[in-house]
Design a binder for these strands. Structure first.
Lengths: 209, 209, 209, 209
DNA sequence: GATGAATGAGGGTTCATTCAT
DNA sequence: GATGAATGAACCCTCATTCAT
């Protein structure tokens, strides 16, 4: 996951634009065909450059995949990472906000690429998986844990909630991402309602009083 | 998704053993490398047969993948399908049982292959995805919906629960499957506890009384 | 073109029948698909025997091809060779008979196989081509030459006819064979009329008196 | 039989040279080994290019065969097609010219390839056979028929000649082509004399007055 | 002898990567 | 730097031939 671009320093305006074009094209093609089936020629055409040009910016197809992740997905994750960590409002609302953010994140086409790559890729995807685990999963779980603890501390949540595995609250968002990849053709998902229902059931419980 | 094996009738003892060897080898290699990166030569070697022999049992690499799914995953799914449909006990327990079954299903190595294949999925995976959607997803959701309705009818669940999207209750099981594929190396998941926590929060709600 | 059958001597009644079945099946399949595209499996199935059985009678696919030629085509050629050599009637009728015989010979499915094999086959077909040239072409031309000489001697043909290359009179029969291979689908040939026309024009000439 | 070369427009000087090299190499190898037995690797080596390069110019082996035919044979056929259609001189001379042209056509090495390909012909040769039948055979026969009719109309030929199947006059040329493929090694053909003899016998008839 | 499952060399084709222009 | 023609390793699959039963 180190340097994909050979010369980090000098990137002229037009070079930067080319780089962006390539990354955007790669996103489109990786999303459409998956990493293995994606052809460098298609990406080049989509980007409006020659095949050889891709190799001026990325050493290999795998490096291009990493480049996509690093240059578009990571920043996006960081941005929503901040939002998720925001500490205001009651615990219930903080949790709701965090789940909505996570769901939105999982539903994006960039996330689809990342998920597909991590899931399909063999050994070669390992570094990315590790990175994702360390930088995103761990962090996200910490945010949720913090919210749960906060809710318990303020008395908003019942005491035992501190002991709940925070993964519980990532279920629906993850399912959102997977569903979008697999079944979107057959039955589009209403993200909003799913998360709302999820929150409802989890906040209120299913039992009648 | 029909016949992979040319002559479904007669399969001598030794042929059946070979078929099993091939399927087992395919599971191992598909699991390790993913469908695209898996080499027929590797599968043959792993199975201890010649490359050509694979084609006596399966017409193509894709058919071998389907063979793996059909001969190992589908039966497993059917078995737990029955269990999930069992109608006894209070709704709360039926729901718990269904979620535990789903989680166990999603956590199996065969399911990992299926998930990976469907997600990596070029066009060739489409029929399998369709099959899975029709035969597993739809059915599972119906079982859960039935349980929710039953709980409402008996007064065990609050009235609005009928309106909840049953997908809500598949979140954790799915996450289980995905987690196993991605992060099992880094941090093994305690399926049991995750589902228990999930049920807890969903049944009782998070709020203190 | 030596021995195709391993044990020339002992061939039980049923073995002889099997051999015939195989040769007939080979004719059918070679005729339909051509030598290269013909599959041993198809021939076996057509003959109602197992694939391995073919190899009890012929060492290789090429040997089977030779076997077809030797055991069916050569005898046929010899038989009509005799007829063509028959020395009776006026020269005009002898020539007509010879051309009709040649045309019939060229139009048979066995001849189609032989022609296709000799024409398509690379180096491997050389021995057969040599055999055919020595035993059939040369002989046939001698028969025709004899007829021409005879006609001149009896005063039936004009003197210069002795100098005509006898190949001239094989043109139509050969074309018959080639046409049957190539264009039979598109427009079936009326062999009889073609040869009759040919004889007409060649005997009478085209010029008006 | 349409476009074999992907971009018909721009073909740089060196690309055109490569294309020619490939076609020449293909002619050589197809001629030597026949279509089926010809190896793309051999053609590439013969042409002095890498295997992959062949596929920059022709999509498949069959397309390369078509390319050979289109780029060398068809032009040749067209040229002589024009000559054959020329309407001047007495019918006798027109017929002679047409037969000489046809014989020359059939005797070329390119024609040998075409003939061999059509005759070996699996299903894949069918389109070429059809094309050849429609564009060459039909047209050639029409030319000859026109000449016969013309000869009858001017009184040069006897009346019944109109009824003669024009195929009669293609016999010798075709035999020329087949002979060259099969027996050239053993006894080279004197095309000129064969056609002259043929014309002689056909124009004058065999009978003495 | 007969069988047909097993073999494995070999072929056409793809496509990531290179490099001369 | 940009191009895209050229490369060639790699892969799936076929099918003539073998051999254990």
């Amino acid at each position: 996951m180190e340097e994909q671009v050979h010369e980090k320093k000098a990137l002229s305006r037009s070079q930067q634009r080319r780089l962006d074009d390539i990354v955007q094209a790669a996103i489109k093609v990786f999303d459409r065909d998956g990493f293995e089936a994606a052809r460098m020629a298609d990406i080049a055409e989509e980007a409006g450059v020659a095949k050889g040009t891709l190799y001026l910016y990325f050493d290999t197809k795998a490096a291009l995949m990493e480049g996509v992740i690093v240059s578009t997905i990571i920043p996006a994750l960081e941005k929503i990472g901040d939002a998720a960590g925001a500490e205001d409002g009651p615990a219930k609302e903080r949790l709701a906000r965090q789940m909505r953010i996570a769901a939105k994140r999982m539903a994006s086409p960039e996330m689809a690429i990342l998920l597909r790559h991590m899931i399909s890729g063999g050994e070669q995807a390992k570094p990315i998986v590790k990175f994702y685990y360390d930088k995103v999963v761990q962090l996200g779980l910490e945010h949720i844990q913090a919210t749960l603890d906060y809710g318990v501390k303020t008395g908003e949540f019942r005491k035992e909630v501190s002991e709940i595995d925070p993964l519980v609250f990532v279920g629906a968002p993850v399912y959102t991402g997977v569903w979008n990849i697999l079944f979107d053709d057959m039955q589009a998902l209403d993200d909003e309602k799913l998360i709302a229902d999820y929150l409802d059931s989890v906040i209120l419980g299913l039992l009648s009083k």
